[in-house]
Design a protein around this nucleic acid. Structure first.
Lengths: 146, 146
DNA sequence: TATTGTTATACTCTATAACTATA
DNA sequence: TATAGTTATAGAGTATAACAATA
């Protein structure tokens, strides 16, 4: 090594790593934006799911997100404690989750920040690029099951 | 909620989340493949960096990867203990890192697995799609600095 | 018997502060 | 004084096992 020269990046040509780097870039920026609302990424995602599926239970959210239901417990509990999500007894086991008024208000702010983040990172892409990108990402995800 | 119907996914239209899901799909598959070599993703990346930059030190790798140098310590130490990477005193502070013979042999296997993974997830994409994808990912990463 | 929510726990990743030694 | 490597530690995120209450 010459000492001062930057290292050769052996991952440059690997699409998988480029994907990861781009993903981390957008997510860490979004995560920072959510800090202003005192929310982590997972909190925001759960609020979105409850907003889109009023009356759902936390097991359904866990399944949809592909996370263990044990790890959903502190997330939902935290949102309920902050009065952003309300639990109503559905049957003896499950609670129907809905957004409180405060939760709905925060949901609107989350939506704004998320769209601003999308615009920052994906704005200005022409329609063809967007289409290719979305289709490629969908193909990649589909191939994970094969 | 109807109870049996799957939840509406409110993240479907957000490119940031699609990016994350695609990224996780490719990385977890690669991570599983590396298990056969008893390597984690980070181990494989470091071996690649040392292979591409013989004589580099671990601080340079940390900087290139954007991780803290404190978190590089157990990774490099582990590779040295397994005799995959060799340290040679460069000056009193830094060690020049190189692949051992075993490390080089493992590097070849890493390369095979990584290329198989690339083929699985990105194979069959036509040249135009690859180009659009790579350019979009690069643009996204560049926008993180603005 | 299977499902939902829960507790306790552990392992990995990542982050900060502080120390040693060398430049 | 700045840099390289290290140690200890703390916080997330994610994993398993076991339990209570209910279907």
């Amino acid at each position: 090594m010459t000492g001062k020269a930057p290292l050769i990046d052996p991952l440059e040509h690997l699409l998988g790593y480029q994907l990861r780097r781009a993903s981390l870039a957008t997510l860490s920026a979004l995560s920072e934006a959510y800090e202003a609302l005192d929310l982590r990424l997972t909190d925001a995602i759960v609020l979105r799911f409850v907003g889109a599926n009023p009356g759902c239970n936390q097991g359904e959210i866990s399944k949809a997100l592909g996370v263990r239901r044990t790890n959903m417990v502190p997330v939902v509990s935290g949102l309920v404690e902050r009065a952003l999500v309300a639990r109503a007894a559905a049957d003896g086991r499950t609670h129907a989750l809905t957004l409180t008024q405060a939760g709905a208000a925060l949901h609107a702010q989350i939506d704004e920040l998320a769209h601003a983040n999308e615009e920052r990172f994906f704005g200005g892409f022409d329609e063809e690029t967007r289409k290719v990108l979305l289709r490629a990402l969908d193909t990649i995800r589909a191939r994970a099951e094969s």
